[in-house]
């Protein structure tokens, strides 16, 4: 392989970001983090949980300020690529209803060694939950519904992940 080809193989593609309305298609995403120089691939899948303390969740709904959410996702994705030397990165968030046990968010990345991948998944997920304008609405089995606004001085609680 010529030196030029080697250099090209190292160039990182732009992170793949999506907001989707239906189920997240994991199989279709899988090849997106393939890279010949990767020694580690990792995925984080956030799913709708049924229980929050004593409360039983019936289902969840997500809404977003979509253009801003995409922009914030790109910002944190680019920062993560740089910070953890990621070779590939995929972030997909589902909007609308996300029933119990289904994925609301999927993050996949690859790196030359595993520490970067492990660290990146946690960092990206924490940043996403802080900065990206997406909100979840809990619908509980007792009929109660509420928007989840962490830190807000309101009668809202029960962040799930």
């Amino acid at each position: 392989m010529s030196k030029e080809c080697q250099v090209n193989a190292m160039v990182t593609e732009k992170p793949h970001l999506e907001l989707v309305d239906g189920p997240i298609q994991m199989e279709a995403l899988r090849p997106r983090i393939d890279h010949p120089d990767a020694g580690a691939q990792g995925w984080f899948v956030g799913v709708t949980r049924r229980t929050t303390g004593d409360l039983i969740t019936e289902t969840l709904y997500y809404e977003a300020h979509q253009p801003m959410a995409k922009r914030e996702m790109m910002k944190l994705a680019q920062e993560a690529v740089k910070k953890f030397s990621l070779l590939r990165l995929v972030i997909v968030h589902r909007l609308g209803e996300v029933p119990i046990a289904e994925a609301s968010v999927v993050i996949g990345c690859s790196s030359s060694h595993r520490p970067q991948t492990f660290a990146a998944l946690e960092w990206i997920m924490n940043a996403l939950k802080k900065e990206v304008p997406i909100w979840k609405r809990e619908v509980y089995s007792d009929g109660k519904e509420e928007w989840v606004h962490p830190d807000a001085n309101m009668d809202v609680s029960g962040a799930s992940e």
């Binding site: 956030g46 997500y62 977003a64 300020h65 253009p67 801003m68 959410a69 922009r71 968030h93 609301s104 968010v105 997920m125 996403l128 939950k129 802080k130 900065e131 990206v132 304008p133 997406i134 909100w135 979840k136 928007w147 989840v148 606004h149 962490p150 830190d151 807000a152 962040a159 992940e161």
Partner: peptide, 25 residues
């Protein structure tokens, strides 16, 4: 589509959005 602080000035015609504490993920 960008977070701004209280001291920022908003030009006429800009899109202004109120962003409650986010809860994605």
């Amino acid at each position: 589509c960008q977070y701004v602080g209280p001291d920022a000035s908003v030009p006429l015609g800009a899109e202004v959005a109120l962003i409650p504490p986010v809860s994605g993920g």
